[in-house]
Design a protein around this nucleic acid. Sequence first.
RNA 1: GGGGUUAUAGCUCAGCUGGAUAGAGCAUCGGCCUUCUAAGCCGAGGGUCGCAGGUUCGAGUCCUGCUAACCCCA
Length: 586
Amino acid sequence: MKQTIEALIVQAVESLKTSGVLETNTLPTITIERCRDPEHGDFATNVALILAKVAKTNPRQLAEKILAVLPVHDAVIKVELAGPGFINFFINPNVQYAIIQTIHELGREFGLSAIGAGKKVQVEFVSANPTGPLHVGHGRGAAYGSVVADLLQAVGFEVEREYYVNDAGRQMDILATSVWLRYLEECGEVFPFPSNGYRGDYVREIAWTIHKNSANQYHQPIATVLENIPADEPQGGDKDVYIDALIERAKTLLGLEHYRAVFQVGLQGILQDIKADLSEFGVNYQCWFSEQQLMDDGSVEKALARLRAGDYLYEKDGATWFASSQLGDEKDRVVVRENGQYTYFASDIAYHHHKLERGFDQIIDIWGADHHGYIPRVRAAMRALGADDSKLTVLLVQFAILWRNGVKVPMSTRSGEFVTLRQLRNEVGKDAARFFYAMRRSEQHMDFDLSLAVSKTNENPVFYVQYAYARVCSVLRQLDEKGWQRNLQSGMDNLNLLTAEHEIALLSTLTRYPEALQKAALQYEPHQLILYLRDVAHEFHTYYNAHQFLVEDALLRDARLNLVCAVKQVLANGLILLAINTPESM
RNA sequence: GGGGUUAUAGCUCAGCUGGAUAGAGCAUCGGCCUUCUAAGCCGAGGGUCGCAGGUUCGAGUCCUGCUAACCCCA
């Protein structure tokens, strides 16, 4: 419809040019907008306001001239000049009715499009260290990332969802050692737990499992473990030195094989928990990508070799540096430490190199906002690897601040003081949690009031949309109970009986769904889809209160039922896309 | 000190990329259930769009400078 109107305008402007009224050669980009206010019609254009400047006339006069030569079209029943020089278009309702038939025919497919043209997109999100359960902060990234991925798929991209598992590095060693120490407690040893160890209950559970399955196989007397180990922080030492010494001691006493065994039980235990958690949250991945794999299969060396070949690496102070500052980063970065170990950044370079080699047209990384300083160096790495860094899109998600009874909830994985995503789901439910997270723009700092979410779940806006869906279902049940049959064809043939203001408004809102979906997808803004669904729900509720659907007049009844079923379909399509349930009754 | 994000109603947030009288939910007040589900609808009050300039027919939206909050980096 937009294109039709645009064509009419272009035609009118061209004819003004040939008749010499307009002396400009430049045709500005014409914008046709849907009107917010129904009094302004269905579409409006500001072309006269834009052109007035070059034509050196006042906008209203120019608009009148455009109106005079505007071609007539069946779909447009009225055109009027308004305000400072807007041209408003009123669309023939007969054209609008067609959307009901379209929605009926396309069903679940309605709204989907092919503008992604099958381009391969990878969306990597959450990627939390597997050192503990996901907390509510991760929930936002999970909800946002999964909806972004689903939206892109809906508009025709080929999407791969990926979780990067940081299963290498010091944090994992700290976890493995924490597990082992808790295990020693299970064996009856008594000692103060390291201040820098992981203290969550889940560590104890993993230790308990190991003890159950392997009894005292990994036991060492605590005196041996702590022999000649420097003091922990509470005793005046350094907590990092202390935990690192314990890690080395664990490796020595257990031997590499047994250490790996404990390590793997810890890692797998937590990873399984994360996978289950996300799956129950409606988040599914095609790939869980292991950082350790990059180390093991030589990917890191390969990527660094590539940088070296491009002369981007140099040695200084015993370490190997990447000259990222040549490529837009603020300073150079270490990739291999003095002790020969790769930095996190080295694996990240290898990881992005690997992504590039997998042939994605677009790579989307979704990170917590605290990682924003990381973007320039990753871009630098991509350029150094010879890639076009515009392939990389980094989307940042701001942290949600948790409040409970007016007090900030502390969040620290190490101390074990945090609200898990699982707890949140148990308290407010999957649907409300997803909806709440996806409702907000990702860059918006967000307050999450847990006490409100728990005590007043009825106020959560997700119910508003679900209720609209359930109401339609209820109407259809009532139809059955009244012994009436729904005549689909008759309803389609009599759509022109839908003349009430509410009905016309609903038609135009339903028509907007594909646009809303595309916009939400291409701008990575799931909240736009949610706002749209709230609009649909609102207009439906209003309609519901204003008119009875199950009326005696069968022709009108069937027409209204067709409209209402179209509403049901659009709500379902949107909710299913958001991985939110569509309850038939509430 | 450098950088990022944010600032809109009492609270939580939208604002369709520069358009017409700045919107919703919650909260407050007043109406609507013998009629398809009241988790709903209708109405009212509530605003210096952080502050000060600038760009133009037109600015919550764009540019500059401040201020504050959160977060990275030294």
